[in-house]
């Protein structure tokens, strides 16, 4: 078995809320293997985004450790941090907030390629065209402002930006939750294809168990800052051992006709 790409141990983080401290992460441990998708599912407020933000170092944990690509990730700084950062990318639910709103699609990708010196400058234009095409966007869209494209197109740009730097891990936090179901399906197909091609790992975070199951090799169920169930997606869902997972399973809308009155 290959060594895990990422190992998180006993991550803890609290926030002040109405005079109390709420434990958003109450001792979370997990591992992600190369080429694997770990699905993280749970009701809203259970701590999923906090975990994503701690892993990407947007939020500092109060305790715990993260090893990423063999390095003590939370202790990295300077040039070693910059070099490793390239390999952990993140895609959010509403990517507009994650872009300079005045940038064009090509500009967003050019910045990512430049910052991490992914390809020689002379090849940047061609690489941008390749990325735009790879995520299924028309070439003509490259010159458009990020503000003037649809939500689904913007999410493709966010994915293109994330994969542009050829990362080892992409953390997707509710990345398809705001998209309508037709667009959602095409984005999920794209993510799975990219993984097959490049061997990238995903941490796929969502409140939607059906979507998580569709794209994940393993799933982890989170509740009140803890991971309460974990394992191969099919096994965990076939035999839920917590009430939280039972509720998530029951809440999945099934396609059916009118129920009998």
């Amino acid at each position: 078995m290959t060594a895990p790409l990422l190992i998180a141990r006993d991550l803890r983080r609290t926030f002040a809320s109405g005079g109390r401290r709420v434990a958003a992460l109450d001792g979370v441990s997990l591992e992600i293997a190369p080429g694997e998708t770990l699905g993280l599912v749970g009701a809203s407020g259970c701590g999923k985004s906090t975990l994503a933000r701690v892993l990407t170092r947007l939020v500092a944990p109060e305790a715990g450790s993260v090893h990423f690509m063999g390095a003590d990730w939370l202790k990295l700084s300077g040039s070693r941090l910059r070099a490793a950062r390239r390999h952990m990318q993140m895609v959010f639910q509403e990517p507009l907030a994650a872009f300079n709103p005045r940038a064009t699609v090509a500009g967003v990708l050019a910045d990512a390629l430049r910052i991490h010196a992914v390809v020689p400058k002379a090849e940047r234009g061609a690489e941008i065209a390749r990325l735009v095409d790879r995520v299924g966007l028309p070439a003509a869209l490259a010159g458009r402002s990020i503000r003037n494209i649809s939500g689904g197109q913007r999410q493709r740009v966010a994915i293109a930006r994330a994969i542009a730097v050829r990362p080892r891990l992409v953390i997707l936090d509710e990345a398809v939750s705001a998209l309508d179901v037709s667009v959602r399906g095409r984005i999920l197909d794209l993510l799975v294809d990219l993984q097959r091609e490049t061997g990238v790992s995903y941490l796929f975070v969502s409140h939607d168990l059906a979507v998580v199951r569709a794209v994940s090799h393993r799933i982890a169920v989170m509740d009140a800052g803890r991971i309460v169930e974990e394992g191969p997606a099919a096994e965990v869902i076939a035999a839920p051992s917590t009430a939280v997972l039972g509720r998530l399973i029951d809440a999945v809308p099934r396609l059916k006709g009118k129920p009998q009155a």
Binding site: E36, V181, G199, A214, V215, L255
Partner: peptide, 20 residues
């Protein structure tokens, strides 16, 4: 038909297998 096809629930064939 496209909306029916886009539906994902717990009976939908997964897009990935068990282990990478």
């Amino acid at each position: 038909a496209a909306l029916v096809a886009a539906h994902i629930d717990l009976a939908t064939p997964p897009l990935v297998g068990d282990a990478p």
